[in-house]
């Protein structure tokens, strides 16, 4: 099978190009394995990857126009020729490797950690199974950036709009019955950009490889803000 891969090496190339590789297709082959086969032919080809099972979030890339994790994308399901590009909207460091720093910065901006004000109990903080269920669909995020780099609002304002991944985490802590910083969290999200640049385009939902729904989380934050303001 043929795979066309985006190549750009800042030390050698004036501009990026697509390079075509021939890879022998194996039954059940995932795109990551196909890219490793390319890497074995041409060691100068660079991409991030690690766990190979969709939990580390390293190998997000744009495949045939859609953001995916290479390790859980079966090549058999992909239209030919397969075209692989870096995640859109991020500066390219080399080949499929993009600069993720703004994405991480937005994540860190939402205070993505549990805040408790009361003294801690000697044992666990109790949480009912129903309250714990509210975290399902939120805590599983692997920070692969498929969502935020598919979001037009994030493309235009990556420095001001938190983006779907970070906002999903903002809601993950607002939704946690153990967290005691709801007001501060909501105050910090005020303003025209951080939260409100979401125009419910829902690209994030479509591409999330873990089946999470940032748009819904953003809606919940907006609802809570409204509720608090009345």
């Amino acid at each position: 099978m043929q795979i066309q891969v985006y190549r750009y090496h800042p030390e050698q190339d004036a501009k990026p190009r697509m390079q075509t590789y021939e890879v022998e297709e194996q039954p059940g082959m995932m795109l990551r394995e196909a890219l490793l086969a390319i890497k074995a032919q041409d060691e100068s080809f660079a991409f991030r990857h690690s766990c190979g099972e969709g939990v580390c979030g390293s190998d997000a890339m744009n495949v045939n126009g859609s953001n995916k994790l290479a390790c859980i994308t079966a090549v058999a399901d992909l239209k030919r020729p397969i075209q692989v590009r870096p995640l859109p909207g991020r500066p390219v460091i080399r080949d499929l490797v993009v600069d993720m720093s703004q994405f991480y910065e937005q994540y860190r901006n939402v205070q993505p950690y549990l805040i408790r004000k009361e003294p801690l109990p000697e044992q666990e903080i109790r949480q009912s199974p129903a309250d714990r269920d509210k975290l399902d669909g939120l805590y599983e995020c692997i920070l692969c950036a498929c969502c935020s780099t598919a979001c037009p609002s994030f493309w235009w304002n990556p420095d001001k709009f938190h983006g779907p991944a970070a906002l999903l985490q903002a809601w993950r802590f607002l939704a946690d019955s153990r967290d005691q910083a709801t007001d501060e969290r909501l105050d910090a999200l005020e303003g025209p950009y951080k939260l409100f640049r979401c125009h419910t385009i829902m690209n994030c939902v479509e591409v999330c490889p873990k089946g999470l729904n940032p748009t819904k989380a953003i809606g919940h934050i907006k609802d809570l803000m409204l509720e608090k303001s009345i």
Binding site: Q123, R126, Q127, R132, Y139, D176
Partner: peptide, 20 residues
């Protein structure tokens, strides 16, 4: 150690009584 992790925010699954 496990209690400390829980306090730090780990979303442990829960039993009916709210314990880990």
């Amino acid at each position: 150690t496990v209690y400390e992790l829980e306090h730090a925010g780990v979303p442990f699954s829960r039993l009916d009584d709210g314990k880990i």
